[in-house]
Design a protein around this nucleic acid. Structure first.
Lengths: 119, 119
DNA sequence: CCGCTCGTTCACAGCCGTTTCACCGGACGG
DNA sequence: CCGTCCGGTGAAACGGCTGTGAACGAGCGG
């Protein structure tokens, strides 16, 4: 599995992640994540800058093999993105590489006001 | 065990805790707690900001291993919350992290009047 | 013996997390 | 233009976890 080391701390932009405590701080404030969300984030951050395949992510977090047709990863990436964006709107962390997987990397996002507000 | 040090004093928001004396002051007024409630509070405060698992809490306060199905912790967290909220309604101290445990951290609670107040 | 407090356990309700499904739109190749 | 593949997204279904009120019994002091 993954969550082994207890006292290391991961940093990524405004994020501080304590794998041992199951805790994530976004700009200093605790960001409540579910077990899956947390596992996914840790797996991605530990491989920051590299592309991680869905298959590998599933193995790392769910600890079993990804059956095809299973969209769990997509769903949880989405949930993570929403929470991260809510906490830190100015940053984009999880990037899709179509056909390959996801890559974690804190990058400035294009934030603009919503006067006309699409949707 | 835990209650060792006698002469330290813990502060957390409007709370002042004297582990050696078994005393808690909320905004200056003594807050009467039972032995379990007090132990639980001290254990949490000593780890403020971090998530503490039920299992760890039980070991720290009850000094034995948490059998599964045992809900004592939940019940005492509830009792503590009630007393703390009664004494200091404007603050939330004990936060649940589903699947992980509890985290102590004084945070302003969302207190609002309900005149119209839906949503 | 009585009444109280405390710790523990039980039962029920409600909320939250996980998984799955359905639909959508963009990208791509024929 | 059409069909297909792929990922984004909202929501339903289900189960497990947590909140909460109450009952029970032990211990203690009056």
């Amino acid at each position: 599995m993954e969550a082994a080391q207890t006292d290391d701390v991961l940093y990524a932009g405004e994020l501080e992640i304590r794998p041992g405590d199951g805790l994530v701080l976004a700009a200093g404030r605790a960001l409540p994540l579910s077990v899956r969300e947390f596992g996914l984030l840790v797996a991605l951050v530990r491989r920051a800058g590299r592309i991680v395949s869905r298959s590998d992510l599933y193995t790392l977090v769910w600890n079993s093999e990804l059956r095809d047709g299973d969209r769990s990863i997509d769903v949880y990436v989405h949930k993570l993105r929403v929470k991260l964006e809510t906490a830190l709107p100015a940053w984009a962390f999880i990037h899709t590489h179509v056909g390959f997987g996801y890559r974690f990397s804190p990058e400035a996002s294009h934030v603009f006001h919503n006067s006309t507000t699409p949707r």
